[in-house]
């Protein structure tokens, strides 16, 4: 095996993807089926939240992947800007629609969960607000890719947007935290952090945690499979474009 940069070659990458796609997809399916069935049917209802807690098996993994997808886009954007590997830029492009889907899933499942728990579909809680902002970042990123014809220009511009956006996303997270405390001093009955995210693992007993872990692994594998598949599609699209261009020349 040579260096990892071998896979920056589109052809090599496509071949490798073809080999790994089926096992990864299989792994994702197995994990998701096991995790979701286990979580939905073989865990007790929470004594306080009842059966509503079970949406955690969709909500938490989706929310995690929404952030991780953006992080992956940031890394691949940097690689593109520094090393000019096309596969890297195309992987970032391929990840964005998956990331935005995960964000929407997290927002919708959060709303469905929030309704019985907090008595409202939506609250301007810092965590919820941050995800809404993340959703806007995804939309802008995808729209910019779609708006530009020249693929290299689009890759450059979206990469810079992704990097600048990341800085502002972190800034927004702090701003939103500050802003909500500023508005609702002390009156934070509906702290989402108590129910979702990191606090979960401490609060929720192992009965809930193990199926959740399986679901998270399933979502990670699903994300990897989708990114590989979509990146390969993007490579094929570019190859088609290149072949057509060559044909026009002849």
């Amino acid at each position: 095996m040579g260096s990892i940069w071998e896979y920056a070659n589109p052809v090599k990458f496509s071949q490798t993807v073809s080999r790994f796609l089926a096992p990864v997809a299989m792994g994702a399916t197995v994990c998701l089926v096991i995790g979701l069935v286990w979580g939905f049917f073989f865990t007790p209802d929470d004594f306080r939240q009842g059966a509503t807690v079970k949406i955690i098996y969709l909500h938490v993994p989706a929310a995690l992947m929404a952030i991780n997808a953006w992080f992956m886009m940031l890394v691949t954007s940097l690689i593109w800007l520094v090393r000019r590997h096309h596969v890297s830029a195309l992987a970032a492009k391929a990840a964005a629609p998956i990331g935005v889907t995960m964000t929407v899933i997290a927002l919708i499942t959060g709303a469905i969960w929030g309704q019985p728990m907090w008595g409202t579909w939506w609250a301007w809680d810092p965590r919820l607000t941050s995800f809404l902002i993340l959703f806007l970042f995804y939309l802008g990123y995808i729209a910019l890719w779609e708006a530009i014809d020249d693929p290299d220009t689009a890759a450059d511009l979206t990469s810079v947007l992704c990097i600048v956006g990341s800085v502002f996303a972190v800034l927004s997270r702090y701003a939103v935290n500050f802003w909500n405390q500023g508005l609702h001093q002390g009156a934070s009955v509906m702290r989402a952090g108590a129910i979702t995210g990191t606090d979960t693992e401490e609060k929720v007993s192992n009965v809930f945690f193990y199926p959740l872990l399986v679901c998270i692994i399933g979502f990670v594998l699903l994300f990897v499979a989708l990114v590989l598949l979509r990146t390969r599609t993007e490579i094929h699209k570019r190859r088609t474009r290149a072949l057509l261009a060559r044909e026009r020349m002849a």
Partner: peptide, 10 residues
Amino acid sequence: SLLILPLYVP
């Protein structure tokens, strides 16, 4: 506008 709005949030 779409690109700028989230950047204006902080």
